[in-house]
C-alpha cells in the first residue's frame, strides 16, 4: 500500500473513531440507559445529565492520566530502581533507593549539564524577553510594524532541527585558505585576518552560540505577547507623563514597564519552561559534545544510548523538580482566578 494511502486510511480510522465514541456514547446514554420517556422520564433526564459530564471528560481524563500523570509517578518509581535481567531472560525492577541519584551526582557530565542548563535559564529568557520588548516597543510605533512583527515572529514556526541546520550554516568554518561560507567566520576572518574558528567547539562560548538559536526562535513569542500588553496600557498614564515633560525613555522605563511587569513575568516563565525542555537544538548541533550538554539531552543519552533507565529517570526527575515551582505558581494563579 502506498504510504500516503495508508496514512489516509489511518487518519480516517483515528479521527472517525474519536467522533464515533462521543456520538455513540451520548446516544447510548439518552436512548438506552436513561431514555427520556416512559414513567421515569424526568428522573432519567437528571441522571443522564449527571453522567454526561464524565462522558464528555472521560477520554481527556483518561489520556491525561495515562500520558502525563501516570508517567510522573512511574518515573519517580523507576528513578529508585535498577533494571536487572534475570537468568531466565525476564527483567525485574529492583529497588535501589537513591543509588541512581548518587551515581548521577558522581557523573561530571551531569554537573556540566546542570551548569549549562542554569546558564540557559538565565540567558535565554533574559535575552528573548529583552529583544521581544524592544521589538514590540519599536514596531508599535511605525506603519509597517505589522510586517516587521510577522517577520521577527516567523522563526517560531521553524522546527528546532530546522533552526539547527540554519545556524550550523551560519557557524560553518572552512579551512583557512578556502573562502568562508559561514557568515560569522566570513566576518571574523575578513576583519581580523585570523584563521577561521570552529565555533561550536570553542569551550564555554559554544553554549552561547547554541543559546542564540533559541533566543532567535523565542523573541517573536515574547514580542507578540508584550506588544499586546503595551497596547493595553491606558493612554491617560502616558499622556500625563508627556504633559509632565517625560522623554520617551522615561515613558518606557518608568511608565510602561511597571504596568506590564505581570506580562513580562508570564513571558519569562513560559520561555523558562521551553528552556528546561530544550533538546532538539543541542542534539542536532553538538549532541552535548565539547561541553555543551544540557539536562534534556543528558537524559536522552542515558535512556537511549547508555540504556540506563534508572539514571535516565533520575535526571528526568531533576527536570521535573526544576519545573515544579512554576507548576505550583500556575496552579495557585488559576485557582485564585477562578475564585475571583
Amino acid at each position: 500500500m502506498h504510504p500516503a494511502f495508508a496514512g489516509l486510511v489511518t487518519i480516517v480510522i483515528g479521527v472517525g473513531g474519536c467522533l464515533a465514541y462521543f456520538w455513540l456514547s451520548n446516544q447510548f446514554l439518552d436512548k438506552v440507559l436513561f431514555p427520556a420517556r416512559g414513567p421515569n422520564a424526568g428522573r432519567n433526564i437528571n441522571r443522564a445529565n449527571q453522567i454526561r459530564p464524565w462522558l464528555f471528560l472521560f477520554p481527556a481524563l483518561f489520556a491525561l492520566s495515562l500520558y502525563l500523570a501516570y508517567p510522573v509517578i512511574e518515573t519517580i518509581r523507576l528513578s529508585l530502581t535498577e533494571r536487572v535481567t534475570q537468568s531466565d531472560g525476564s527483567t525485574i525492577y529492583q529497588f535501589v533507593g537513591l543509588a541512581n541519584y548518587a551515581q548521577m551526582a558522581d557523573d561530571p557530565k551531569f554537573w556540566e549539564a546542570m551548569f549549562n542548563n542554569m546558564m540557559w535559564l538565565i540567558v535565554v529568557p533574559a535575552l528573548s524577553t529583552a529583544f521581544g520588548l524592544l521589538a514590540a516597543q519599536l514596531t508599535d510605533r511605525i506603519k509597517w510594524g505589522n510586517i516587521a512583527k510577522s517577520l521577527i515572529f516567523m522563526p517560531m514556526a521553524i522546527s528546532f532541527v530546522g533552526a539547527a541546520v540554519i545556524w550550523k550554516l551560519i557557524y560553518d568554518a572552512r579551512p583557512p585558505d578556502a573562502s568562508q561560507i559561514g557568515v560569522v567566520n566570513a566576518i571574523y576572518v575578513g576583519l581580523t585576518g585570523n584563521d577561521p574558528v570552529q565555533l561550536l567547539t570553542v569551550p564555554f562560548w559554544n553554549n552561547f552560540f547554541l543559546m542564540i538559536v533559541l533566543v532567535w526562535i523565542q523573541t517573536g513569542f515574547a514580542m507578540v505577547i508584550l506588544s499586546a500588553a503595551l497596547r493595553g496600557i491606558p493612554e491617560e498614564t502616558i499622556e500625563a507623563a508627556i504633559v509632565d515633560g517625560a522623554n520617551p525613555f522615561q515613558i518606557f522605563f518608568k511608565i510602561k514597564m511597571p504596568q506590564i511587569m505581570g506580562t513580562i513575568v508570564v513571558v519569562w516563565t513560559t520561555i523558562t519552561l521551553v528552556v528546561l525542555k530544550v533538546f532538539d537544538i543541542v542534539f542536532a548541533m553538538t549532541n552535548g559534545q565539547w561541553g555543551t550538554q544540557v539536562l534534556a539531552n543528558y537524559m536522552y543519552n542515558q535512556l537511549f544510548v547508555t540504556r540506563d533507565w534508572g539514571v535516565g529517570s533520575a535526571s528526568a526527575m531533576i527536570i521535573m523538580l526544576l519545573v515544579t515551582p512554576i507548576l505550583i505558581w500556575n496552579v495557585r494563579n488559576a485557582r485564585a482566578e477562578m475564585r475571583g
Binding site: L64, P71, F279, S313, A316, M320, V323, V331
Partner: peptide
Amino acid sequence: FVVGLLVVPLQLALIP
C-alpha cells in the same frame, strides 16, 4: 489538574 499538567515536561513520559 489540567493547569498543573500544562508544564509537566514530556521527558518524564518517555520511558513509562
